[in-house]
Design a protein around this nucleic acid. Structure first.
Lengths: 250, 250
DNA sequence: CCAAAAGTGTTCCGCCTACACCCATGT
DNA sequence: ACATGGGTGTAGGCGGAACACTTTTGG
């Protein structure tokens, strides 16, 4: 929002939108999902310079009358072919504005993190751009500063698992506690004690609740599990803390 | 960063920066400090329409070759007269991009939270705009969507006190544990048990460390306190959790 | 001597960890 | 029968809450 410096006033008072260097505003999306017990990220292959042929995060320009959130949903739908984009978890990560991050022009990008429960195979984008789910660890060097955005997204998600109900966003509407536990184990890269995980989750008010008509889902082997769904809470009290890593860097 | 949609390409391939509706990009600053045991926010009074005469968050336009962070520091220096802006804690809050949030034109604003130890009296800005420290609770209706930005900032700061060493940013370089406790009590609006607070803080590795040549600072009455300073850690393990509010809304 | 703030000690209780053990299902 | 995953029980210990108590200053 405009402040009171003279630069702003001279630009704004006359409503001259082009008097100052304009900025291109884009959104970038770090779309994460769990496939085969591993964290995957949605990437698209660039068709043009710069970075032609390299993989990058999906994204695109804001249209004149949409918010960054709306642009992110639109781009996501266009590039993955998802229908119910309205329901999924979308969250601002941060905004990247360093000059020179795009060699062509000044681009300010609002980055989002999106979490998907299952991973529908990615279709190419509307203009036939190639899209692919890639294991997080194999997401090679990406175009622009997307490596950093991706790293920021992972760190943020890992931290938010502790004190928010974010993990349910990786799960389908109805899920088993085993599935929920896998989310934590995969994102954190640790093993958790199943009985204790179960109790902690159930003891946290508003985290999950059993589905009334509970038909228990079987996962091949073993006893079929009771189904749960997200109860309303956004923040977890008490939080589900990561196991204490002794050698943690201060 | 550009994606692969056609809109983007047609705008970008020709390097035509004005082919699409340009966006004005600004920064807004929620500058918080503690004065007289209460949370205060730095506000400036607007001189022009819209919202002329109303109070607003300080901020301003990005210059062509500076990042949002740099713009935030520059604006802060200009509007408060602070010299060592380089040292203080500045952190991205989120980006506000809803169309219509500025009635004049399309403005995308990157909001920051800044935390100051003491509160030097605010000078008016370089162009004589009025600036004032205001108790958080008395920050009346602000211009634009700044009420929301301010609320978001407070919520974020409160949450981050739990699991980061952010509280030290409200303190001078060397501080007493009593001062640190006041930060928590003021931002959270709760009372904390002094002995337990003390032990928890000292038990969290990397949070604070005693200053070697410890001359103990007196605060009028009572035993002078030992001085501490922030040790390196950014995240606290274990976190300093807020006292459990039972009637917390889910 | 008293008030006020810093700092230490100690007890109690809850929760978290760990691991043992039972349940239900597929092969 | 047995492997596999779901689910319950329980003993031990660590840590936080609560509060008593000592220390050091200013008035």
């Amino acid at each position: 929002m405009p402040g009171h410096d003279k630069d702003a006033h001279s630009a704004v008072q006359g409503y001259d939108k082009h008097a100052y260097e304009p900025f291109a505003v884009t959104v970038d999306l770090a779309v994460l999902t769990l496939r085969a017990g591993a964290l995957h990220i949605l990437l698209v292959r660039r068709g043009e310079e710069p970075y032609a042929g390299q993989w990058a995060l999906p994204g695109g320009f804001l249209l004149p009358d949409e918010s960054a959130e709306a642009a992110a949903r639109r781009e996501l739908a266009e590039e993955t072919g998802l229908n119910d984009v309205s329901g999924l978890h979308l969250e601002q990560l941060r905004t990247y504005s360093e000059p020179g991050r795009d060699p062509r022009m000044r681009v300010v990008s609002v980055a989002f993190t999106a979490l998907l429960p299952d991973a529908p195979e990615a279709r190419g984008g509307s203009d036939a751009a190639e899209a692919r789910w890639t294991p997080y660890d194999e997401a090679g060097p990406l175009a622009f500063d997307h490596d950093r955005i991706l790293a920021d997204a992972r760190e943020r998600v890992g931290a938010k698992l502790e004190y928010t109900s974010l993990a349910t966003a990786f799960c389908p509407p109805e899920f088993t506690l085993g599935e929920l536990q896998q989310v934590y184990e995969t994102v954190w890269g640790t093993r958790l004690d199943k009985p204790n995980f179960r109790r902690k989750v159930l003891a946290t008010p508003g985290f999950v609740e059993p589905v009334p008509g509970a038909p228990r889902r079987t996962s091949g082997r073993g006893k079929p599990a009771a189904l749960h769904r997200a109860a309303g809470a956004a923040r977890l009290h008490p939080p589900l803390l990561r196991p204490t890593q002794e050698g943690r860097p201060a």
